[in-house]
Design a binder for these strands. Sequence first.
DNA 1: ATAGAAGCGGAGCACGTGCTCCTCTTGAGG
DNA 2: CCTCAAGAGGAGCACGTGCTCCGCTTCTAT
Lengths: 199, 199
Amino acid sequence: MATDTSSRRPLRADAERNRAAIIEAATEVLAEQGSAVDVREIAQRSGVGMGTLYRHFPTKEDLLGTVLDREFTAWAGAAREAAAGTDDPRAALEGFYEHALATQACHRAVVEAYGHNWSGPALDCARLLYPVLDDLRTRAQEAGVLRADATTGDLALLLATLSHTVQLVGDHGARVWQRQLRIALDGLRPTHGTALPTG
Amino acid sequence: MATDTSSRRPLRADAERNRAAIIEAATEVLAEQGSAVDVREIAQRSGVGMGTLYRHFPTKEDLLGTVLDREFTAWAGAAREAAAGTDDPRAALEGFYEHALATQACHRAVVEAYGHNWSGPALDCARLLYPVLDDLRTRAQEAGVLRADATTGDLALLLATLSHTVQLVGDHGARVWQRQLRIALDGLRPTHGTALPTG
DNA sequence: ATAGAAGCGGAGCACGTGCTCCTCTTGAGG
DNA sequence: CCTCAAGAGGAGCACGTGCTCCGCTTCTAT
């Protein structure tokens, strides 16, 4: 999917520089404006021409995929470490969501990406996240601080949903989405009699 | 905003027919495909030409506004009646969300409309809904079946959020979003110690 | 230093989409 | 029936956006 860097001879020095510049600029722009940006703006901000951009990434989607993959991989790794470094299972779970929404949710394109691959087969993003969420869920349920009928899938979908909410209310409305988060987290407590519908 | 029907002389019979056909077709198409549809498709499905369509609705946005307004008004009225007809405040609250998500959430364009006017001033849609939600909230809180720190705004945002979730998982994933709804509704119970963050 | 391959730039093409323009048709009052 | 203004229709324009083409530049191996 991303341009293969191993099989062919190394890129020329300037080409490598340009590639990096493109990725950096694209990351910025995609975070700010989402995936609907004009490719020309990415080219301009990275200081290269259209030809150069399309030499490195044959398609807008390729560029988008590369950027999102980088962002998401880095972030999922950080989340895993943070979770592993927190002893209290409940704090780990809540901290995960708080951190996720406070940081990742600002990246418009990432949040949009969540939106696409939920009816079809799970995407790479979800693949990376599942182990982390699964670990958080297992620990919390074993400690009795998470309702037993909650699944990893529930937690994943909740993240996607709340990410969208964060974007909806904008950055200045932090208090607003934090209230939604508290409601959801309270709903995940084990103190409830109502069972989640199964199918 | 919508074409004025009162101040000028009545439309010719065929014009009236066409106008109705356009609205009907647009309602269908917008529900299916969201607001990004090609205006040509609406014209074709309603059996009129582009000129006719633009004679009745000078702008795509006008057409969209008219359709959404109709849909939303009708539905909000039904929701109000359903709420008024249910004695148990908790059942009224839960029934509201269940019904809303099962029906209205299938209209892509309506759900998209939720997404736009949350950072700016509240839109007409929200204006219509607020009284209903406010009533549901008051009754439920007085009966002690809804956490006291939940606001009408929380309930409104929750609806927008969950509507988006429904669209995300698609119609066949009903069980999936119903689980999210249960979690949220459980989170709205008054049995919690954690206060919602205020600002 | 020099050849030539690898890389660069940006004007321009293809195409989708909102909207207009102008001619032809049709309903309704006399 | 006849008239004519209100209405219908659909080809075409304007414009934004993904992507290409090809002459020019720059790096690097000899």
